[in-house]
Write a protein that binds this DNA or RNA. Sequence first.
RNA 1: CGGGGUGUAGCACAGUCCGGUUAGCGCGCCAGCUUCGGGAGUUGGAGGUCGAAGGUUCGAAUCCUUUCACCCCGACCA
Length: 494
Amino acid sequence: MAKELKDLANREDSYSQWYNDLVVKAGLAEYSAVRGCMVIKPYGYALWENMRDALDGMFKATGHENAYFPLFIPKSFFSREASHVEGFAKECAVVTHYRLMNDPEGNGVVVDPDARLEEELIVRPTSETIIWNTYKGWIQSYRDLPILVNQWANVVRWEMRTRLFLRTAEFLWQEGHTAHETRQEAVEETARMIGVYRDFAEKWMGVPVVVGHKTANERFAGAEDTMTIEALMQDGKALQSGTSHFLGQNFARAFDVQFTNRENALDYVWATSWGVSTRLIGALIMAHSDNNGLVLPPKLAPLHVVLIPIYKGDEEYASAVARLRELADELRARGLKVKIDDRDNVRSGFKFAEYELKGVPVRLALGPRDMAAGTIELARRDTLTKEVVPQEGLAERVASLMDEIQAAIFERALAYRDDHITRVETWDEFVRTLDEKGGFISAHWDGTTETELAIKEATKATIRCIPLDAEDEEGRCVLTGNPSKRRVLFARSY
RNA sequence: CGGGGUGUAGCACAGUCCGGUUAGCGCGCCAGCUUCGGGAGUUGGAGGUCGAAGGUUCGAAUCCUUUCACCCCGACCA
């Protein structure tokens, strides 16, 4: 399998094919019978559960609670906020009927034409509308605020073209929806949650991100401001990995959510929404994987350590497995997730390759030589290095190695990312860098949507964000030469 | 929705142009033996309405008509 991946990696135009093969062969996910929809297999789902648990803990720690809202949204709700409809209208699945019947012609089952819904239901592409319709009933006074609610859910966006994890017709995500008394408080919440996402991406996933604001053109439909974390994939394309929106009073006005403030006056509620999805798994894969397969960060890996017996004959097999069981218990006692692969119908070399493909951080192999010497072979997935170490003190060594690997893969991704932020001054440089090197391009932009679209038209590069840490710097727009006050980050993206 | 392509065993494919024994290869699967410190070797075996429907023909995976599905490239997008 790794051999197949290598062959693919050697072909210049096939990164996406390589990615797709990796996702499938590593057992994370595959396409389903339903066009554009993905089956997340147990290994992929275990990864998602780990991500979900970590994020959920971070949400709770920032005062949020979970709730659940309906999958279906009445069409009329949708049309309440003008730019919101416009943004999502083209990709909505719509429920028009509620009943099937036996085909009078005898051709199986057909939609019962008499069962047409009076009002069509939209399968949620995001839940702002149904949630704000609900919040209207929850909020009367400033004493009812803030509302800090998150929901874990699936949403449907009927995309034309799909890619496993990155863009599927249905995907899993979380969406936080908060309501606040003041603009200031909502703006702070927006920034706080993008900070949570940055911490999660960097500390848990080991994926460095740039935090910034979206341009007006790239903003969420219905938001006043959209903050984003942008990650860089190993093929030089950017991936929007999480967003946090300051919604102003747009949804409160659309759904008439007013409250009595401290001055006994009626005011509209201030809102935010923020979300990350199973797309993060795509980010994880494309940020760290190599030609041998996945490289998973220990803090999220479904399995930390795999133990493999090396043997000739039943006797060696039995003694190696018995010793591995003892070692596995010691590792588990350190909180590590451990598996002994004692299958005797595949050879050890096959197992080595298989766990590399799956990205298991550490592999331990125990053979007759080790049994005699009291040693064991320890292999690191991230560096593909092996060393023979004493069995004595193994658990402690492996436990600390997890931290080392977690740090190492972040550092490696960070070095790659930093090496792929290129400052350019001229249009010529801009185009050449984009084609030859890829990655983020830090350049001046005159601040107009017109220029932004012209650049996209010419190069397919978009403004990923206006970075939070962008310094004030007088310059000239890379396309128009008009004055600019700071640099923005451009990239081709997923 | 535009442009291209593909449907043959669980997977990946050859055969189709130019119709002709019982439809083939590799991987995988099942059984046996030998192996086992980096993706094993060998022997035997199972598995197909050749996407579907109709037509031409003595004879169709192959030719004709219709139809369905999927993939890739664009537009759209977390």
